[in-house]
Amino acid sequence: MAELIARTPCAGLLPLAVGGVDLTEESLGALTTLSPRRGQEAALSEALEAAHGMAFPAPNRTTGKAGARAIWFGRGQALLAGPEPDADLARLAALSDQSDAWAVVRLRGAGAVDVLARLVPLDLRAAAFRRGHTARSELAQMMASITRLGADDFQIMVFRSMAATLVGELKTAMEAVAARG
C-alpha cells in the first residue's frame, strides 16, 4: 500500500561543520503552541507541570529539559516541544499544532556566539543570555526563536519554508568566522 513519506525541513542541507562549529538539524518531536485562555495562566502552568513536568515559562525563559521542554514563544505563548500535549491542556489554552512549521537547527562549538553575532541583533553575552534563556528575534530578516542550551550551544528555529536560507546564512557566517582564524 502507498505510504506518505515524511521529509524534514533541512533534509539534504545538513549536517555541516566549518571550523570548530557544527550545524545539525534537530528533531524535537511534537511542537505545540500554548496560548492560555484569559485568567487561566496559573492553572495552565499547573496542568503543564502535572502532565509534562514543567511550568509555563516566563518571558525569555525555557522550562523542562531535553526531550520535553516549554520554550517561551511570544506574548502569552509558549511552545511545548517533545510530548504530544495532554488533552486536559485544551481546556485552559488554545493549542495549535506546529510540529511541521519550524526548521530547528543546533549550532554548537567554539565560535558559535561569533557566528550568531553576525546574524542576530541580540545581546548574547554569557551574563545576559544564559543557558536556558530564549528569545524571539530575527535572524537575517527571518522571524526566529533562539535558545541557549549551553556555553557554545544554541537552538535556532525559523519557519520551515526558510530552511534553505537559514542554512545558507549560517554557513556564510560560519565560513567568515573560520576564515578570520
Binding site: 518571558p59 506574548r75 505563548q77 524571539r136
Partner: peptide, 8 residues
C-alpha cells in the same frame, strides 16, 4: 509592533 519579537 514587536513583529520579529514577542508580537506585542
Amino acid at each position: 509592533y514587536h513583529e520579529t519579537g514577542c508580537g506585542a
